[in-house]
Computed example of a mutant assay.
Amino acid sequence: MNREASSPIDVTTTPMPADSAAIRSAFSRFPSGIAALCAAVEGEPVALVASSFQVGISLDPPLVLFSVQQSSTTWPRLRRATHLGVSILGADHGEICAQLAAKDKSARFKDIETIVDADSAVFLPNSALLMKCSIRSETAAGDHRLILLEVLGVQADTRVEPLIFHGSEFRGLDRR
């Protein structure tokens, strides 16, 4: 839609709220896919769920990125893995996503089917995209860490629609 020059757009912003809940609510207006980053560490599956996952950071070499809170107790365990399985969750994975992100780490993989490869990368079947990755670098960024991953292999399933996180809710794509 084009606007005529005689009707200018009035865009105003408000200062950033000091309240982290208000910031989180504002940021929730940006829709994102959801990645489950998983590996078997010392024989036990470990999962971290990230809505901050970004692809296309670099094509040569292929790099992806996600962020994790500095206070995470899962990341120090997961980062010990030599390879991570990244599963871009499918539209039907809402309950699995909530279970993998639960505070009770002992029940995260209860009754969840997984695929574990020879390098202990763990994948979730019926995902929109699977990527095998290795950790390239970590950088402190405020109260988070930015984790750069090198993609070593991919498998996409074009029949699976991705799970979307928007407005603090799980959604699917609306194909109008």
Rank of each mutant, 00 (worst) to 15 (best):
N2E: 15
R3K: 15
S6G: 01
P8Y: 11
P8E: 14
V11F: 06
V11Y: 03
T14C: 11
M16C: 14
P17D: 10
A18C: 03
A18R: 09
D19Q: 08
S20C: 05
A21L: 08
A22P: 02
I23V: 14
I23L: 15
I23H: 04
A26Y: 04
A26L: 07
S32M: 08
A36S: 13
C38H: 05
A39T: 04
A40G: 00
A40W: 00
G43F: 00
G43V: 00
G43S: 01
E44V: 02
P45G: 07
V46N: 02
V46E: 04
A47F: 05
L48D: 08
V49T: 14
A50E: 02
A50C: 10
F53Y: 10
V55T: 14
I57P: 02
S58T: 10
S58A: 12
L59V: 15
L59S: 15
P62K: 08
V64A: 13
F66W: 06
F66L: 13
Q69K: 07
Q70D: 10
S72W: 01
T74K: 12
P76Y: 07
P76R: 07
P76T: 15
R77H: 03
R77E: 05
R77C: 00
L78P: 10
L78C: 05
A81I: 00
L84N: 06
L84P: 05
V86C: 11
V86D: 08
V86R: 01
S87C: 09
S87R: 08
I88F: 04
G90T: 14
D92W: 13
H93G: 08
H93F: 11
G94D: 14
E95S: 12
Q99D: 11
Q99R: 15
A102L: 03
A102H: 13
A102C: 08
D104F: 07
D104E: 05
K105F: 07
R108Q: 15
K110W: 02
K110Q: 15
E113W: 02
E113H: 14
E113C: 00
D117Y: 01
A118G: 02
D119V: 01
S120G: 01
A121W: 02
V122D: 09
V122N: 03
L124Y: 09
P125I: 02
P125L: 06
S127M: 03
A128N: 12
A128V: 01
L130N: 03
